[in-house]
Nucleic acid binder design. Structure first.
Lengths: 189, 189
DNA sequence: CAAAAATATGGAGATCATCTCCATTTTGTC
DNA sequence: GACAAAATGGAGATGATCTCCATATTTTTG
């Protein structure tokens, strides 16, 4: 499905310059407030080039955070391989909140990518969802988690954590959401 | 805090025309896709008038759904008066999902209003949050619900339900989120 | 290596939604 | 009915997004 035509040398250079700029702006927290065309100016390329590489702001955000999200997913796989499934799930969800808390821009990015109703969901979203689904399925298999609740519900709760990122008491509430989800998932013995 | 200068007769008429148009577009599902100025055209008023009455799209959405949200809050109060607190909370949350499911536009509206980071949260949001907070507090008081989880966490889960409104399996997942929240809230005996 | 083909560039300007401004009209008051 | 206050409408300013294509760079071919 991924048509990977080999990118020309200069194209690769410009693309990387754009990504570097985007990363900087991201870390500075201004990603969603910067005029989109200005990413081009800051990276020293033309606006046409910007739009050719990243047709929308969301595409750029997705590219910048592709690494972050991939890291999250890798972590899920590692946990799943080394811990009992229920613990893996708990550790992953707790760690996800940590991770979001540590990266100012991530919550807003995830919320934006998730809310993006324009056609296909971003690759990053898909991967993350798959990771969560796998973790839940394993925990169900193991018998530690009820089987009458869809893994999608956990994703929805994560949506909430991302979407609500500017609530004053975000961190504590996010932790509490995870607590509710985990306790709610425990198989009623 | 609410400075209510009595509205002139024509002003009231135009305002009502705008609201009527907005409600129609809402029900048709196109509220967030319609050019904002077009609300004026459709209502037969000038754009200046539109902007005077509703400075932003969110203000208009808030006004349209003020009634809906007020109804939700009233319902919360009635339930709280007639049922044990834990049941009132459960009934309210289940009913909220019903209500959102029945009104195509509501989820997106709530998500938008909640996500609106421009200054003060809309009156509707505030009222809804107060209602939820009260329900949770009463249930805690009654001893049916743990006291170590913030009511804000429930709001965050609702954020998720609103924000994720375009997931293919929305209804089932939303119900499951509520199940998780309710079971997670139950005081561990 | 030169020429030809393919690929990518930049940035001026088209397009489009949002919002403002104020000369005119409508309403309320005395 | 005349004066003041309130509200109107819609032309145009503003500003962000995106397109287009003549030019430049890279790759391939002979």
């Amino acid at each position: 499905m991924t048509t990977d035509k080999p990118l020309r040398a200069d194209a690769q250079r410009k693309r990387e310059a754009l990504l570097a700029t985007a990363r900087e702006v991201f870390d500075a927290g201004g990603f969603f407030d910067l005029r989109f065309d200005d990413f081009a100016r800051l990276a020293g390329v033309g606006t046409g080039t910007l739009y050719r590489h990243f047709p929308t702001r969301e595409a750029l955000a997705e590219a910048v955070y592709h690494g972050e999200v991939a890291a999250l997913c890798d972590r899920a796989h590692r946990l799943q391989a080394t811990l009992p499934a229920a613990e893996a799930l708990a550790t992953f969800l707790r760690g996800m909140v940590d991770h979001i808390a540590a990266h100012e821009g991530l919550a807003r990015t995830l919320a934006t990518l998730w809310a993006d109703r324009s056609g296909a969901p971003a690759e990053g979203s898909r991967a993350l969802e798959q990771a969560v689904t796998d973790l839940v399925a394993a925990a169900v298999q193991e018998g530690a988690v009820r089987d009458d609740v869809d893994a999608g519900a956990v994703m929805m709760a994560l949506h909430g954590i991302g979407a609500a990122h500017d609530r004053p008491n975000w961190r504590a509430e996010a932790d509490d959401v995870i607590t509710l989800v985990l306790d709610g998932l425990r198989r009623p013995q």
